[in-house]
């Protein structure tokens, strides 16, 4: 008689995977895409509305963009603290992750979760859980681009 162990191990991992994948609900791609598009689009529209308002009053485009980003970051941080941003994220997915508001949400959420571990190594350190890697990659590529330009122009 075959031992049960031998029998189960005879299910190759690939075969098991095929079997398992029949039962996994697929992400509702069309619905997710629509949500991501609409929510992401609306957040950007809000940003554009603020930029246009400021530019219309004589603020430079660069300053207006920066100011709009700061306001969006503030709004995202606040709604995260109030517990709403995560509910939006459940539906909007990338629509609320990709905009700079998603960056702010990740910062606040990581920090908030570790509040009870203290304000220095809890909040202060965890604030960079997601922000850290993001900034690292941004800085590295930016400096690399700068160095390439230095090299090309010299």
């Amino acid at each position: 008689m075959q031992s049960p162990e031998q029998k189960l191990i005879q299910i190759e991992r690939q075969e098991y995977e095929d079997l398992a994948s029949q039962f996994r609900p697929k992400p509702k791609l069309a619905r997710n895409l629509l949500w991501a598009f609409v929510v992401g689009g609306l957040i950007c529209t809000l940003g554009q509305w603020m930029v246009n308002l400021m530019v219309g009053r004589g603020v430079s485009l660069a300053d207006a963009s920066s100011a709009a980003s700061c306001i969006l970051i503030f709004l995202a941080a606040l709604t995260t603290g109030l517990g709403y941003y995560n509910q939006l994220g459940q539906r909007a997915g990338a629509g609320s992750i990709v905009p700079i508001t998603g960056f702010a949400n990740a910062i606040v959420a990581s920090a908030l979760e570790f509040k009870r571990e203290g304000y220095i190594f809890g909040v202060g350190a965890r604030i960079f859980t997601v922000a850290g890697p993001t900034l690292v990659f941004g800085f590295v590529v930016a400096v690399l681009m700068g160095l390439i330009k230095v090299f090309l122009t010299s």
Binding site: G83, Y85, N86, G89, Q90, A92, G93
Partner: peptide
């Protein structure tokens, strides 16, 4: 998993 307040879609699985 993720911090409670992070806007993450929960996988259906």
């Amino acid at each position: 998993r993720f911090p409670t307040e992070q806007g993450v879609q929960k996988a259906q699985t």
